[in-house]
Write a protein that binds this DNA or RNA. Structure first.
Lengths: 231, 231
DNA sequence: TTACTTAGTGTAGAATATACACCTTATATT
DNA sequence: AATATAAGGTGTATATTCTACACTAAGTAA
Protein backbone atom coordinates (compact mmCIF):
# COMPACT_ATOMS: atom_id res chain seq x y z
CA UNK A 1 0.00 0.00 0.00
CA UNK A 2 1.26 3.45 -0.88
CA UNK A 3 1.31 6.03 1.78
CA UNK A 4 2.98 8.91 0.11
CA UNK A 5 0.44 11.30 -1.27
CA UNK A 6 1.81 12.94 -4.33
CA UNK A 7 1.35 16.58 -5.10
CA UNK A 8 -0.10 17.59 -8.37
CA UNK A 9 -1.83 20.40 -10.11
CA UNK A 10 -5.41 20.36 -11.21
CA UNK A 11 -6.62 17.40 -13.18
CA UNK A 12 -9.82 16.78 -15.09
CA UNK A 13 -11.49 13.48 -14.98
CA UNK A 14 -14.61 11.89 -16.32
CA UNK A 15 -16.92 9.65 -14.34
CA UNK A 16 -19.61 7.61 -15.97
CA UNK A 17 -22.93 6.46 -14.64
CA UNK A 18 -23.75 3.68 -17.05
CA UNK A 19 -27.24 2.27 -16.82
CA UNK A 20 -28.39 -1.06 -18.09
CA UNK A 21 -31.71 -2.85 -17.82
CA UNK A 22 -32.01 -6.56 -17.54
CA UNK A 23 -34.48 -8.96 -16.11
CA UNK A 24 -36.70 -6.24 -14.77
CA UNK A 25 -33.87 -4.57 -12.91
CA UNK A 26 -32.10 -1.31 -13.48
CA UNK A 27 -28.36 -1.74 -13.09
CA UNK A 28 -25.23 0.34 -13.09
CA UNK A 29 -21.77 -0.58 -14.10
CA UNK A 30 -19.30 -0.43 -11.24
CA UNK A 31 -15.64 -1.20 -11.05
CA UNK A 32 -13.56 -2.44 -8.20
CA UNK A 33 -10.53 -0.25 -7.78
CA UNK A 34 -7.13 -1.87 -7.55
CA UNK A 35 -5.20 1.27 -6.63
CA UNK A 36 -4.97 3.71 -3.83
CA UNK A 37 -6.80 5.78 -2.92
CA UNK A 38 -9.89 3.72 -2.17
CA UNK A 39 -8.19 0.51 -3.17
CA UNK A 40 -10.68 -2.38 -3.20
CA UNK A 41 -13.61 -0.02 -3.08
CA UNK A 42 -16.38 0.05 -5.64
CA UNK A 43 -16.49 3.12 -7.82
CA UNK A 44 -17.99 4.56 -10.93
CA UNK A 45 -15.85 3.96 -13.98
CA UNK A 46 -13.87 7.06 -14.70
CA UNK A 47 -10.50 8.28 -15.68
CA UNK A 48 -8.34 11.23 -16.42
CA UNK A 49 -9.07 13.24 -19.54
CA UNK A 50 -6.06 13.13 -21.79
CA UNK A 51 -4.37 16.25 -22.96
CA UNK A 52 -5.51 15.98 -26.53
CA UNK A 53 -8.99 14.55 -26.29
CA UNK A 54 -12.28 16.31 -25.78
CA UNK A 55 -14.27 15.45 -22.70
CA UNK A 56 -16.95 13.81 -24.84
CA UNK A 57 -14.29 11.67 -26.37
CA UNK A 58 -12.92 10.73 -23.00
CA UNK A 59 -16.36 9.60 -21.87
CA UNK A 60 -16.76 7.44 -24.96
CA UNK A 61 -13.33 5.99 -24.53
CA UNK A 62 -13.96 4.99 -20.95
CA UNK A 63 -17.22 3.33 -21.91
CA UNK A 64 -15.51 1.51 -24.74
CA UNK A 65 -12.67 0.28 -22.60
CA UNK A 66 -15.10 -1.24 -20.17
CA UNK A 67 -17.81 -2.58 -22.39
CA UNK A 68 -16.44 -2.73 -25.89
CA UNK A 69 -19.40 -0.63 -26.97
CA UNK A 70 -19.22 2.35 -29.26
CA UNK A 71 -21.75 4.81 -30.58
CA UNK A 72 -23.73 4.82 -27.41
CA UNK A 73 -25.68 7.90 -26.55
CA UNK A 74 -23.95 9.64 -23.65
CA UNK A 75 -24.82 12.88 -22.06
CA UNK A 76 -22.99 15.07 -19.69
CA UNK A 77 -25.06 15.92 -16.65
CA UNK A 78 -23.01 17.64 -14.02
CA UNK A 79 -19.51 18.69 -13.07
CA UNK A 80 -18.28 18.12 -9.56
CA UNK A 81 -15.65 20.52 -8.40
CA UNK A 82 -15.38 20.58 -4.64
CA UNK A 83 -11.88 21.22 -3.45
CA UNK A 84 -11.48 18.07 -1.42
CA UNK A 85 -13.37 15.55 -3.42
CA UNK A 86 -10.18 13.66 -4.23
CA UNK A 87 -7.76 12.96 -1.38
CA UNK A 88 -4.68 13.37 -3.53
CA UNK A 89 -5.31 16.76 -4.93
CA UNK A 90 -7.55 18.85 -7.03
CA UNK A 91 -9.61 16.78 -9.41
CA UNK A 92 -12.61 18.25 -11.13
CA UNK A 93 -14.76 15.60 -12.71
CA UNK A 94 -17.33 15.84 -15.43
CA UNK A 95 -20.04 13.23 -15.04
CA UNK A 96 -21.76 11.52 -17.95
CA UNK A 97 -24.55 9.04 -18.08
CA UNK A 98 -25.14 6.39 -20.68
CA UNK A 99 -27.85 3.85 -21.21
CA UNK A 100 -27.12 0.57 -22.85
CA UNK A 101 -28.96 -2.54 -23.84
CA UNK A 102 -28.14 -5.61 -21.85
CA UNK A 103 -29.39 -8.46 -23.98
CA UNK A 104 -29.34 -11.25 -21.52
CA UNK A 105 -25.85 -11.04 -20.16
CA UNK A 106 -23.51 -8.61 -21.79
CA UNK A 107 -19.96 -9.62 -21.00
CA UNK A 108 -17.65 -6.94 -19.81
CA UNK A 109 -14.14 -6.62 -21.12
CA UNK A 110 -11.24 -7.36 -18.88
CA UNK A 111 -10.52 -3.98 -17.49
CA UNK A 112 -7.39 -2.00 -18.07
CA UNK A 113 -5.06 -0.86 -15.36
CA UNK A 114 -7.18 0.92 -12.81
CA UNK A 115 -9.76 -1.70 -11.94
CA UNK A 116 -9.65 -5.35 -11.09
CA UNK A 117 -13.15 -6.03 -12.30
CA UNK A 118 -16.30 -4.45 -13.62
CA UNK A 119 -19.78 -5.72 -12.92
CA UNK A 120 -23.40 -4.82 -13.36
CA UNK A 121 -25.06 -4.13 -10.05
CA UNK A 122 -28.67 -3.34 -9.30
CA UNK A 123 -29.16 0.33 -8.51
CA UNK A 124 -31.29 -0.57 -5.55
CA UNK A 125 -28.68 -2.68 -3.96
CA UNK A 126 -25.31 -1.23 -4.72
CA UNK A 127 -22.35 -1.11 -2.35
CA UNK A 128 -20.82 1.95 -0.80
CA UNK A 129 -18.89 3.94 -3.38
CA UNK A 130 -15.48 5.60 -3.35
CA UNK A 131 -14.86 9.36 -3.40
CA UNK A 132 -18.07 11.36 -3.88
CA UNK A 133 -19.39 8.77 -6.27
CA UNK A 134 -22.57 8.20 -4.32
CA UNK A 135 -23.44 11.83 -4.94
CA UNK A 136 -22.57 11.53 -8.61
CA UNK A 137 -24.62 8.39 -8.97
CA UNK A 138 -27.67 9.92 -7.28
CA UNK A 139 -27.52 12.94 -9.43
CA UNK A 140 -27.25 10.82 -12.55
CA UNK A 141 -30.19 8.72 -11.49
CA UNK A 142 -32.19 11.84 -10.79
CA UNK A 143 -31.25 13.10 -14.20
CA UNK A 144 -32.61 10.13 -16.10
CA UNK A 145 -35.69 10.13 -13.91
CA UNK A 146 -36.43 13.68 -14.90
CA UNK A 147 -35.51 13.20 -18.48
CA UNK A 148 -37.72 10.19 -18.97
CA UNK A 149 -40.69 12.30 -17.98
CA UNK A 150 -40.44 14.40 -21.09
CA UNK A 151 -38.33 12.37 -23.50
CA UNK A 152 -38.71 8.65 -24.00
CA UNK A 153 -35.03 7.91 -23.58
CA UNK A 154 -35.88 4.56 -22.10
CA UNK A 155 -35.63 2.89 -25.51
CA UNK A 156 -31.87 3.00 -25.26
CA UNK A 157 -32.08 0.47 -22.49
CA UNK A 158 -34.30 -2.07 -24.19
CA UNK A 159 -33.47 -4.66 -26.79
CA UNK A 160 -34.37 -3.71 -30.34
CA UNK A 161 -37.63 -5.60 -30.13
CA UNK A 162 -39.56 -5.34 -26.94
CA UNK A 163 -43.02 -5.72 -25.48
CA UNK A 164 -45.07 -2.95 -23.99
CA UNK A 165 -44.88 -4.66 -20.66
CA UNK A 166 -41.09 -4.55 -20.73
CA UNK A 167 -41.24 -0.89 -21.60
CA UNK A 168 -43.61 -0.23 -18.75
CA UNK A 169 -41.48 -2.16 -16.28
CA UNK A 170 -38.55 -0.04 -17.24
CA UNK A 171 -40.51 3.14 -16.62
CA UNK A 172 -41.59 1.74 -13.33
CA UNK A 173 -38.12 0.99 -12.08
CA UNK A 174 -36.78 4.34 -13.20
CA UNK A 175 -39.64 6.26 -11.67
CA UNK A 176 -39.93 3.94 -8.69
CA UNK A 177 -43.66 3.64 -8.94
CA UNK A 178 -46.38 1.53 -10.44
CA UNK A 179 -48.07 2.78 -13.56
CA UNK A 180 -51.51 1.96 -14.87
CA UNK A 181 -51.27 -0.49 -17.75
CA UNK A 182 -54.02 0.94 -19.90
CA UNK A 183 -53.03 4.54 -19.44
CA UNK A 184 -49.43 3.74 -20.06
CA UNK A 185 -50.16 1.96 -23.34
CA UNK A 186 -52.54 4.63 -24.51
CA UNK A 187 -49.96 7.32 -23.91
CA UNK A 188 -47.04 5.47 -25.46
CA UNK A 189 -48.96 4.42 -28.55
CA UNK A 190 -50.30 7.93 -28.93
CA UNK A 191 -46.82 9.32 -29.26
CA UNK A 192 -46.67 7.44 -32.54
CA UNK A 193 -43.05 6.49 -32.09
CA UNK A 194 -43.60 2.75 -31.75
CA UNK A 195 -43.78 0.42 -34.68
CA UNK A 196 -45.85 -2.69 -34.11
CA UNK A 197 -44.12 -5.76 -35.50
CA UNK A 198 -45.61 -8.90 -37.02
CA UNK A 199 -43.88 -10.89 -34.42
CA UNK A 200 -44.42 -12.16 -30.94
CA UNK A 201 -42.36 -12.83 -27.91
CA UNK A 202 -40.88 -16.32 -27.76
CA UNK A 203 -39.97 -18.76 -25.06
CA UNK A 204 -42.46 -17.62 -22.47
CA UNK A 205 -44.74 -20.03 -20.73
CA UNK A 206 -47.85 -17.93 -21.14
CA UNK A 207 -49.54 -15.92 -23.82
CA UNK A 208 -46.85 -14.20 -25.86
CA UNK A 209 -47.00 -10.43 -26.23
CA UNK A 210 -46.62 -8.47 -29.45
CA UNK A 211 -43.20 -7.05 -30.12
CA UNK A 212 -42.59 -3.41 -30.93
CA UNK A 213 -39.73 -1.43 -32.35
CA UNK A 214 -38.80 2.14 -31.64
CA UNK A 215 -39.25 4.42 -34.65
CA UNK A 216 -36.34 6.84 -34.56
CA UNK A 217 -37.50 9.02 -37.43
CA UNK A 218 -40.84 9.77 -35.89
CA UNK A 219 -39.15 10.26 -32.58
CA UNK A 220 -36.93 13.05 -33.78
CA UNK A 221 -39.83 14.79 -35.46
CA UNK A 222 -41.86 14.66 -32.30
CA UNK A 223 -39.31 15.53 -29.67
CA UNK A 224 -37.18 18.10 -31.32
CA UNK A 225 -39.95 20.59 -30.89
CA UNK A 226 -38.90 22.33 -27.78
CA UNK A 227 -40.89 22.36 -24.61
CA UNK A 228 -43.35 25.15 -24.58
CA UNK A 229 -45.24 27.13 -22.03
CA UNK A 230 -48.30 27.21 -24.22
CA UNK A 231 -49.97 30.28 -25.58
CA UNK B 1 -0.27 3.73 -13.41
CA UNK B 2 1.11 4.52 -10.02
CA UNK B 3 -0.70 6.46 -7.39
CA UNK B 4 0.71 9.57 -8.88
CA UNK B 5 -1.90 11.13 -11.04
CA UNK B 6 -0.48 12.44 -14.26
CA UNK B 7 0.33 16.09 -14.33
CA UNK B 8 -1.08 18.05 -17.18
CA UNK B 9 -0.93 21.66 -18.10
CA UNK B 10 -4.65 21.93 -18.05
CA UNK B 11 -6.68 24.73 -16.63
CA UNK B 12 -10.26 24.94 -15.41
CA UNK B 13 -12.23 28.03 -15.88
CA UNK B 14 -15.70 29.26 -15.18
CA UNK B 15 -17.81 31.25 -17.61
CA UNK B 16 -20.99 32.95 -16.56
CA UNK B 17 -24.09 33.76 -18.52
CA UNK B 18 -25.65 36.42 -16.36
CA UNK B 19 -29.15 37.44 -17.28
CA UNK B 20 -30.87 40.62 -16.33
CA UNK B 21 -34.25 42.04 -17.24
CA UNK B 22 -34.87 45.73 -17.65
CA UNK B 23 -37.26 47.87 -19.53
CA UNK B 24 -38.88 44.92 -21.25
CA UNK B 25 -35.59 43.57 -22.51
CA UNK B 26 -33.63 40.51 -21.55
CA UNK B 27 -29.96 41.35 -21.22
CA UNK B 28 -26.70 39.61 -20.57
CA UNK B 29 -23.60 40.88 -18.92
CA UNK B 30 -20.62 41.03 -21.26
CA UNK B 31 -17.10 42.20 -20.74
CA UNK B 32 -14.65 43.69 -23.14
CA UNK B 33 -11.37 41.85 -22.93
CA UNK B 34 -8.18 43.82 -22.50
CA UNK B 35 -5.80 40.92 -22.94
CA UNK B 36 -4.76 38.57 -25.65
CA UNK B 37 -6.15 36.31 -26.91
CA UNK B 38 -9.24 38.02 -28.26
CA UNK B 39 -8.11 41.40 -26.99
CA UNK B 40 -10.85 43.99 -27.48
CA UNK B 41 -13.46 41.33 -28.15
CA UNK B 42 -16.63 40.92 -26.19
CA UNK B 43 -16.84 37.86 -24.03
CA UNK B 44 -18.75 36.23 -21.24
CA UNK B 45 -17.33 37.02 -17.83
CA UNK B 46 -15.20 34.16 -16.72
CA UNK B 47 -11.97 33.32 -15.07
CA UNK B 48 -9.66 30.61 -13.90
CA UNK B 49 -10.73 28.50 -10.95
CA UNK B 50 -8.26 28.87 -8.18
CA UNK B 51 -6.50 25.90 -6.69
CA UNK B 52 -8.33 26.03 -3.41
CA UNK B 53 -11.81 27.11 -4.29
CA UNK B 54 -14.75 25.01 -5.40
CA UNK B 55 -16.20 25.68 -8.82
CA UNK B 56 -19.40 26.99 -7.27
CA UNK B 57 -17.34 29.40 -5.26
CA UNK B 58 -15.45 30.50 -8.34
CA UNK B 59 -18.71 31.26 -10.12
CA UNK B 60 -19.92 33.34 -7.20
CA UNK B 61 -16.65 35.16 -6.96
CA UNK B 62 -16.69 36.13 -10.61
CA UNK B 63 -20.22 37.40 -10.33
CA UNK B 64 -19.32 39.38 -7.25
CA UNK B 65 -16.25 40.95 -8.81
CA UNK B 66 -18.32 42.21 -11.69
CA UNK B 67 -21.54 43.24 -10.06
CA UNK B 68 -20.89 43.50 -6.37
CA UNK B 69 -23.76 41.07 -5.87
CA UNK B 70 -23.68 38.11 -3.54
CA UNK B 71 -26.16 35.39 -2.70
CA UNK B 72 -27.49 35.19 -6.18
CA UNK B 73 -28.91 31.91 -7.35
CA UNK B 74 -26.47 30.41 -9.85
CA UNK B 75 -26.66 27.11 -11.53
CA UNK B 76 -24.16 25.15 -13.47
CA UNK B 77 -25.51 24.09 -16.84
CA UNK B 78 -22.80 22.62 -19.01
CA UNK B 79 -19.09 22.00 -19.24
CA UNK B 80 -17.27 22.74 -22.45
CA UNK B 81 -14.20 20.67 -23.08
CA UNK B 82 -13.22 20.66 -26.70
CA UNK B 83 -9.51 20.42 -27.19
CA UNK B 84 -9.06 23.60 -29.12
CA UNK B 85 -11.57 25.88 -27.58
CA UNK B 86 -8.82 28.08 -26.19
CA UNK B 87 -5.99 29.06 -28.52
CA UNK B 88 -3.37 29.03 -25.81
CA UNK B 89 -3.81 25.61 -24.36
CA UNK B 90 -6.18 23.22 -22.80
CA UNK B 91 -8.92 25.00 -20.92
CA UNK B 92 -12.04 23.21 -19.81
CA UNK B 93 -14.72 25.58 -18.71
CA UNK B 94 -17.73 25.04 -16.54
CA UNK B 95 -20.59 27.34 -17.47
CA UNK B 96 -23.02 28.83 -14.98
CA UNK B 97 -26.03 31.00 -15.42
CA UNK B 98 -27.40 33.54 -13.03
CA UNK B 99 -30.43 35.77 -13.05
CA UNK B 100 -30.37 39.09 -11.36
CA UNK B 101 -32.67 42.00 -10.80
CA UNK B 102 -31.83 45.15 -12.64
CA UNK B 103 -33.74 47.85 -10.83
CA UNK B 104 -33.53 50.63 -13.29
CA UNK B 105 -29.82 50.79 -13.94
CA UNK B 106 -27.59 48.61 -11.84
CA UNK B 107 -24.12 50.01 -11.89
CA UNK B 108 -21.33 47.59 -12.60
CA UNK B 109 -18.12 47.63 -10.64
CA UNK B 110 -14.94 48.73 -12.26
CA UNK B 111 -13.58 45.48 -13.49
CA UNK B 112 -10.41 43.83 -12.33
CA UNK B 113 -7.53 42.93 -14.55
CA UNK B 114 -8.98 40.96 -17.38
CA UNK B 115 -11.60 43.30 -18.74
CA UNK B 116 -11.71 46.96 -19.59
CA UNK B 117 -15.43 47.25 -19.10
CA UNK B 118 -18.58 45.32 -18.39
CA UNK B 119 -21.98 46.22 -19.78
CA UNK B 120 -25.52 44.93 -20.03
CA UNK B 121 -26.41 44.09 -23.60
CA UNK B 122 -29.71 42.93 -25.01
CA UNK B 123 -29.63 39.24 -25.82
CA UNK B 124 -31.24 39.91 -29.17
CA UNK B 125 -28.62 42.31 -30.24
CA UNK B 126 -25.30 41.21 -28.85
CA UNK B 127 -21.95 41.46 -30.59
CA UNK B 128 -19.82 38.58 -31.77
CA UNK B 129 -18.21 36.81 -28.84
CA UNK B 130 -14.71 35.54 -28.19
CA UNK B 131 -13.73 31.85 -27.95
CA UNK B 132 -16.72 29.52 -28.10
CA UNK B 133 -18.74 31.92 -26.02
CA UNK B 134 -21.53 32.15 -28.55
CA UNK B 135 -22.12 28.44 -28.07
CA UNK B 136 -22.01 28.81 -24.31
CA UNK B 137 -24.42 31.70 -24.40
CA UNK B 138 -26.91 29.85 -26.63
CA UNK B 139 -26.85 26.85 -24.43
CA UNK B 140 -27.42 28.97 -21.36
CA UNK B 141 -30.31 30.75 -22.99
CA UNK B 142 -31.79 27.44 -24.02
CA UNK B 143 -31.40 26.26 -20.46
CA UNK B 144 -33.41 29.06 -18.91
CA UNK B 145 -35.99 28.76 -21.66
CA UNK B 146 -36.53 25.13 -20.78
CA UNK B 147 -36.39 25.69 -17.10
CA UNK B 148 -38.95 28.45 -17.08
CA UNK B 149 -41.43 26.02 -18.61
CA UNK B 150 -41.56 23.95 -15.49
CA UNK B 151 -40.21 26.19 -12.75
CA UNK B 152 -41.04 29.85 -12.36
CA UNK B 153 -37.44 30.97 -12.08
CA UNK B 154 -38.36 34.24 -13.72
CA UNK B 155 -38.92 35.88 -10.36
CA UNK B 156 -35.20 36.17 -9.89
CA UNK B 157 -35.13 38.70 -12.68
CA UNK B 158 -37.89 40.97 -11.47
CA UNK B 159 -37.86 43.63 -8.79
CA UNK B 160 -39.30 42.56 -5.47
CA UNK B 161 -42.64 44.10 -6.30
CA UNK B 162 -43.88 43.66 -9.82
CA UNK B 163 -47.01 43.71 -11.90
CA UNK B 164 -48.46 40.75 -13.71
CA UNK B 165 -47.80 42.51 -16.98
CA UNK B 166 -44.11 42.76 -16.19
CA UNK B 167 -44.04 39.10 -15.33
CA UNK B 168 -45.75 38.24 -18.57
CA UNK B 169 -43.39 40.38 -20.61
CA UNK B 170 -40.50 38.55 -19.07
CA UNK B 171 -41.95 35.19 -20.00
CA UNK B 172 -42.54 36.51 -23.47
CA UNK B 173 -38.98 37.59 -24.05
CA UNK B 174 -37.54 34.41 -22.65
CA UNK B 175 -39.85 32.20 -24.67
CA UNK B 176 -39.81 34.52 -27.67
CA UNK B 177 -43.53 34.43 -28.13
CA UNK B 178 -46.68 36.25 -27.23
CA UNK B 179 -48.82 34.83 -24.47
CA UNK B 180 -52.51 35.32 -23.85
CA UNK B 181 -53.08 37.75 -21.02
CA UNK B 182 -56.05 36.06 -19.42
CA UNK B 183 -54.64 32.57 -19.60
CA UNK B 184 -51.29 33.71 -18.32
CA UNK B 185 -52.80 35.38 -15.29
CA UNK B 186 -55.10 32.48 -14.57
CA UNK B 187 -52.19 30.07 -14.61
CA UNK B 188 -49.83 32.19 -12.55
CA UNK B 189 -52.39 33.01 -9.90
CA UNK B 190 -53.40 29.37 -9.75
CA UNK B 191 -49.92 28.34 -8.74
CA UNK B 192 -50.60 30.20 -5.54
CA UNK B 193 -47.07 31.53 -5.28
CA UNK B 194 -47.92 35.18 -5.76
CA UNK B 195 -48.92 37.46 -2.95
CA UNK B 196 -51.14 40.34 -3.95
CA UNK B 197 -50.03 43.56 -2.29
CA UNK B 198 -52.07 46.54 -1.11
CA UNK B 199 -50.08 48.72 -3.36
CA UNK B 200 -50.06 49.94 -6.90
CA UNK B 201 -47.55 50.83 -9.48
CA UNK B 202 -46.41 54.45 -9.38
CA UNK B 203 -45.25 56.97 -11.91
CA UNK B 204 -47.08 55.62 -14.90
CA UNK B 205 -49.25 57.81 -17.07
CA UNK B 206 -52.14 55.38 -17.23
CA UNK B 207 -54.09 53.21 -14.88
CA UNK B 208 -51.68 51.77 -12.35
CA UNK B 209 -51.52 48.02 -11.96
CA UNK B 210 -51.56 46.05 -8.73
CA UNK B 211 -48.22 44.97 -7.39
CA UNK B 212 -47.41 41.41 -6.45
CA UNK B 213 -44.71 39.71 -4.47
CA UNK B 214 -43.29 36.28 -4.94
CA UNK B 215 -44.08 33.94 -2.07
CA UNK B 216 -40.98 31.84 -1.54
CA UNK B 217 -42.45 29.54 1.07
CA UNK B 218 -45.33 28.46 -1.08
CA UNK B 219 -42.99 28.16 -4.02
CA UNK B 220 -40.77 25.60 -2.38
CA UNK B 221 -43.75 23.58 -1.25
CA UNK B 222 -45.11 23.51 -4.76
CA UNK B 223 -42.00 22.93 -6.81
CA UNK B 224 -40.00 20.58 -4.69
CA UNK B 225 -42.31 17.81 -5.69
CA UNK B 226 -40.44 16.24 -8.47
CA UNK B 227 -41.71 16.00 -12.00
CA UNK B 228 -43.80 12.97 -12.50
CA UNK B 229 -44.93 10.82 -15.30
CA UNK B 230 -48.33 10.36 -13.77
CA UNK B 231 -49.85 7.11 -12.72
C1' DT C 1 -59.71 -30.31 -19.87
C1' DT C 2 -58.51 -27.41 -16.75
C1' DA C 3 -55.75 -24.27 -14.27
C1' DC C 4 -52.64 -20.67 -14.60
C1' DT C 5 -50.52 -16.50 -16.15
C1' DT C 6 -50.00 -12.54 -18.72
C1' DA C 7 -51.95 -9.88 -22.89
C1' DG C 8 -54.94 -6.76 -24.27
C1' DT C 9 -58.78 -3.53 -24.29
C1' DG C 10 -62.72 1.19 -23.34
C1' DT C 11 -65.18 4.59 -21.10
C1' DA C 12 -66.73 8.11 -18.06
C1' DG C 13 -65.45 12.01 -15.15
C1' DA C 14 -62.01 15.39 -13.73
C1' DA C 15 -58.67 18.54 -14.57
C1' DT C 16 -56.18 21.41 -17.53
C1' DA C 17 -55.35 24.16 -21.66
C1' DT C 18 -57.01 27.15 -25.19
C1' DA C 19 -59.41 30.72 -27.74
C1' DC C 20 -61.43 34.88 -27.57
C1' DA C 21 -63.35 40.76 -26.57
C1' DC C 22 -64.97 44.20 -23.84
C1' DC C 23 -65.52 47.36 -19.98
C1' DT C 24 -62.79 49.86 -16.24
C1' DT C 25 -59.67 53.00 -14.38
C1' DA C 26 -56.18 56.29 -14.05
C1' DT C 27 -53.69 59.96 -16.30
C1' DA C 28 -52.85 63.63 -19.64
C1' DT C 29 -54.70 66.99 -22.73
C1' DT C 30 -57.75 70.44 -24.25
C1' DA D 1 -65.16 69.57 -17.11
C1' DA D 2 -64.88 66.84 -20.96
C1' DT D 3 -62.41 63.94 -23.76
C1' DA D 4 -58.75 61.06 -25.47
C1' DT D 5 -55.41 57.68 -24.45
C1' DA D 6 -53.34 53.60 -22.71
C1' DA D 7 -53.04 49.88 -20.09
C1' DG D 8 -55.58 47.09 -16.33
C1' DG D 9 -58.53 43.62 -15.45
C1' DT D 10 -61.99 40.00 -16.10
C1' DG D 11 -65.28 34.98 -17.75
C1' DT D 12 -66.92 31.39 -20.43
C1' DA D 13 -67.34 27.74 -23.68
C1' DT D 14 -64.73 24.11 -26.00
C1' DA D 15 -61.07 20.97 -26.71
C1' DT D 16 -57.59 18.23 -24.89
C1' DT D 17 -55.37 15.56 -21.64
C1' DC D 18 -55.25 12.85 -17.39
C1' DT D 19 -57.05 9.58 -14.26
C1' DA D 20 -59.42 5.74 -12.32
C1' DC D 21 -60.95 1.43 -12.92
C1' DA D 22 -61.99 -4.56 -14.23
C1' DC D 23 -62.83 -7.95 -17.23
C1' DT D 24 -62.15 -11.18 -21.32
C1' DA D 25 -58.72 -13.40 -24.52
C1' DA D 26 -54.91 -16.18 -25.62
C1' DG D 27 -51.39 -19.15 -24.95
C1' DT D 28 -48.80 -22.70 -21.99
C1' DA D 29 -48.33 -26.39 -18.65
C1' DA D 30 -50.09 -29.92 -16.01
Amino acid sequence: METLLPKFDSVFSIDCVIFGFDDGELKILLIERNKEPFKDWWALPGYIVEQNESIDHAAERILYELTGLRDIYMDQFYTFGDVNRHPQGRVITVAYYAMIRLNGSKELKPVSNYASKAVWISVNDHPKLAFDHEKIFSRGFEKIRNKISYQPIAFELLPEKFTLTQLQQLYEVILSKKLDKRNFRKKMLNYGILKELDEKQKGVSYRAAKLYKFDKKKYSKLFQKELTFGK
